[in-house]
């Protein structure tokens, strides 16, 4: 996360070498802080308090209904020594992250590239492709997914053309997670729109020049589109990964909040939710949340550190 501050900053400081310290602070820092003011108010007023509270609660036995008692690190100790469900749910979430994020991003980028061409009826296609994302957490999704991935579902109807008799994908432990991964990929609308917005910012004259030089489509993609798109790729990768780690709703609606069959769709946050609101162990759930935060934080910090080698900014 520190990568940003390293590269720029020189010009503004030079200019302010003359007057007193306070004047210098005013000139250098004030505009930044003024623009940041709404966020700072929100951060200190609304956000940080509950965050610190949850950190505190992770060291208590808070049961939602009575006052919390301090229990030291025992929540964390239990998590790492005596909780098979912690490991199982972490594994489910990891598989989800590893497969859903790249697939979703690749799909979103491919469709965005396709939709960025001048073609008749494109606004319509764009809207259609965004439709699954509009449905959000609708009850209809659970019903629909069952219709597609149950034994008598559409997928098996299709497979039967080739003489394959498929199982009930959505409710068989080996496959159920995959139907949720497909659901996540199917709702690829948001990264697609962001990619589109990024593609629109690439100056067209660069393509024209390249095209006149006889560069192939693929070369243009590799030499122009991808480098200029890296800030957006970077953003989508970071955000989608964080979201995937925190993913809750798809598993909740598909499994009715149970994480079944046989905990095969027990996502980390679903387990956390069960602990907090199902079993009245908010203290333990808070500890689970902070372990997740540490994990995602490490991942993000690592991504930012490596980003200066591959993300191309204009500044």
């Amino acid at each position: 996360m520190t990568a940003r501050s390293l590269e720029s900053g020189a010009p503004a400081r030079e200019r302010a070498a003359s007057p007193s310290l306070w004047a210098r602070i005013w000139q250098n820092d004030a505009p930044g802080y003024l623009f940041l003011l709404p966020w700072l108010i929100g951060f200190f007023g609304l956000t940080i308090g509950p965050i610190i509270s949850s950190l505190y609660l992770s060291f208590t036995d808070f049961d939602l209904l009575t006052d919390p008692n301090w229990v030291g690190a025992s929540n964390y100790v239990r998590m790492f020594t005596n909780d098979p469900k912690f490991l199982a749910s972490m594994r489910v979430t990891m598989v989800f992250v590893i497969f859903s994020v790249p697939l979703k991003l690749a799909f979103a980028l491919a469709v965005a590239m396709l939709l960025n061409r001048g073609m008749r009826g494109l606004p319509l296609y764009r809207a259609l492709f965004y439709l699954p994302s509009l449905l959000g957490a609708s009850v209809a999704i659970a019903i629909l997914w069952r219709q597609i991935f149950a034994r008598e579902g559409l997928v098996n109807d299709f497979l039967s053309i080739f003489g394959i008799v498929g199982p009930s994908w959505i409710s068989t432990p080996q496959y159920s997670l995959w139907t949720i991964i497909i659901l996540a990929v199917w709702q690829f609308g948001s990264p697609m729109i962001i990619f589109l917005a990024g593609l629109r910012q690439i100056p067209q004259d660069m393509y024209e020049a390249a095209s006149l030089d006889g560069a192939s489509k693929w070369r243009q993609f590799v030499k122009i589109t991808l480098p200029l798109l890296t800030p957006v790729v970077f953003f989508n990768a970071i955000i989608q990964t964080i979201e995937a780690f925190k993913s809750f709703t798809p598993a909740f609606i598909i499994s009715g909040g149970t994480g079944n069959p046989i905990n095969s769709t027990l996502f980390y946050t679903l387990y956390l939710y069960q602990e907090a609101f199902g079993f009245f162990r908010m203290g333990y759930a808070s500890a689970l949340a902070w372990v997740l935060l540490a994990l995602v934080g490490l991942f993000t910090a690592f991504s930012f550190l490596t980003s200066k080698y591959w993300v191309h900014y204009d500044d």
């Binding site: 007023g45 609304l46 308090g49 509270s53 505190y56 006052d67 301090w70 229990v71």
Partner: peptide, 23 residues
Amino acid sequence: MTTRIDRRQFLMGTSALVAAGAA
């Protein structure tokens, strides 16, 4: 070891940074 801290007091304490005028 268990130390009792009033839950509501604590939760509110950390949020006391919120200006009362924001009502």
